[in-house]
Design a protein around this nucleic acid. Structure first.
Lengths: 210, 210
DNA sequence: AAGCACTATGGAACGCCGTTCCAGGGTGTG
DNA sequence: CACACCCTGGAACGGCGTTCCATAGTGCTT
């Protein structure tokens, strides 16, 4: 399964073919079907493999539960960032081992925040969806764009297009292009995450109902 | 382009082929390539088409800016829920017309919250990522599962599997199966959304720094 | 009216992919 | 020695995205 991850890192999901993988493993395409049912399962298992490594490197919890959630989320994001193809394949409604493990760790941390028990599930789900969903959005789009164009070029061209728009139709976009040109993808992940966790803190504290 | 949306609704992204679409349009596959560059672009345009309809039906803003953001987000979610294939194709870093429009509306509303101007871009991006990313996570996974199995069956079988896990390895999962069996997907979207918007309100209010 | 450039068509053909099939090799058991 | 089982790998199938090209329509120029 490590070979599949390698090839996916090199060529992306579309570039991974059973023939290529078989060649690297010095075997035939048919042999692979003894181990996996189809390509979807192959990629899903490879993505879960990546997630497993990510979970293994999460630092031990130091601060309170919310801080632990933040660390967990950021670590997973960084790991997925190193394997862009995996980002869109790690899904929240989990069936595979490491996706289950991720959700369990989130839930365990949420349970420690002091939130009433009947809200544990929905809040854990929300955080889980945020991590996998937003990571996929931030990391994966680059795959559609031709891999030759650099991130800077792409952002610059996008910013140019925004500037060319009619300010009457797009009042916000046309005055925000500067921020687009120089932003950090990772910051965008943490900004939303911190908003979400702040919201969590607020609803946790007594005397301040949502 | 409406025909493409129809076929995507009927057969999903994998089920849409140039041959099938050509047949429905009483033409040849080659003719379609005059209008779109490739299948990716076709699906992206179809998804943007769906998003356009969603934006058109957003109710006029009534309450404050945060309430407007909530309404906008929920309306987009509901529209995507009706076209599952589109959910994973509406991406936040926008190039197409309606995706740009969505981001602009978010930004305009964020600007009205009283947040300092230098934070408008990152917060708008965060909300945008949340809407598209989490919608995709909630709506799209059902596509991978065989379409024959109902949602109830799937959840029941997943819950059974969770119950069979070792409580020592998965302490949270094994005591949360009840919530899994009867939950509303839409609630999961709004739960996270409300956390995020609560966080936004908190950071907006003076005398309460994050 | 005639010619021309340009837009648009649609069917045939190409190459590649996921997947299936199956004849056989290896290994451990009676 | 034979049988059963796990696993292999190469050939073959059907279908896909995409390309190519001869040709039909359309509107503008002369």
């Amino acid at each position: 399964m490590g070979a599949a991850v390698e090839l996916l890192d090199e060529h992306g999901e579309r570039g991974l073919t059973f023939r290529l993988l078989a060649e690297r493993l010095s075997t035939g395409p048919g042999a692979l079907y003894w181990h996996v049912a189809n390509k979807d399962e192959l990629v899903a298992l490879a993505a879960d493999h990546v997630l497993g490594h990510a979970l293994a490197e999460v630092p031990p919890p130091t601060g309170d539960a919310v801080a632990g959630l933040r660390t967990l989320a950021v670590t997973v994001f960084d790991a997925l960032d190193r394997h862009a193809w995996a980002a869109s394949r790690v899904t929240a409604p989990a069936t595979l081992a490491n996706a289950l493990r991720l959700f369990d760790r989130i839930g365990t941390l949420v349970a420690r925040t002091g939130l009433p028990a009947e809200r544990h599930f929905e809040v854990s789900t929300a955080i889980s969806y945020y991590i996998t969903g937003v990571s996929a959005q931030i990391i994966a789009p680059g795959l559609t764009v031709s891999p030759a164009t650099s991130r800077e070029d792409f952002l610059a061209r996008t910013a140019d297009r925004w500037e060319a728009l009619d300010p009457a139709d797009y009042p916000f976009l046309t005055r925000t292009t500067a921020n687009l040109r120089d932003h950090d993808d990772r910051d965008q992940f943490t900004t939303g995450l911190d908003l979400l966790l702040t919201g969590l803190n607020t609803t946790t504290e007594p005397g301040r109902p949502a």
